[in-house]
Design a protein around this nucleic acid. Sequence first.
DNA 1: TACTGGATTCACT
DNA 2: GTGAATCCAGTAA
Length: 182
Amino acid sequence: MAKLVVNQFFARETLKVAKDLIGTILTFGNCSGRIVEVEAYTNDEASHAHRRTDRSAIMYDTFGHVYVYFIYGMYHCLNFTTEKSQSGAVLIRALEPLSGIELMKKRRDVEDVRKLCNGPGKLCQALAIDLKLNGTRIGDKVKLIEGSRGEVKTSPRIGIKKATDLNWRFFEAGNPFASRIK
DNA sequence: TACTGGATTCACT
DNA sequence: GTGAATCCAGTAA
């Protein structure tokens, strides 16, 4: 397993980055998990990337950085910024927990491993990700390691679902750790 | 300064 | 399937 070349990886089209993130190992602190579901946000109206504000400026100014935002007064969502020349980001929607599982269980107050990280808010809670992480470089606190993908073209099987007109969800087909696909 | 809505989750029916 | 919880960011005035 190789450490991912962040600059090269995230400078590409958001949709390609999103697809290639499936199967990648994400580590933060003592916990790690395999990314099994993501959502690509390009410059469309449903996305924070549509309008430049103080909060969303990071998506215009950077790629390969962590973008965390707070939603519904209760949850955080973890994104990675993409594309060199325009705004874009990939929301991490679900992880398959690999290590630090006991810690995640404690944080989530849940015993069922499948329910630890099968949602954007849940995985942030399990990994203790909050706004303090916003703006940090990928590879700094949050690290990514190529998993079963990388050179592999055929597996894992990647499912694609349209979320909005321009946004797409990518998930590992048949993986029980992926969140509910609506 | 005040108001509004949201890329979610979970309990309840 | 429905609705409540909850608070920050964005917007209007």
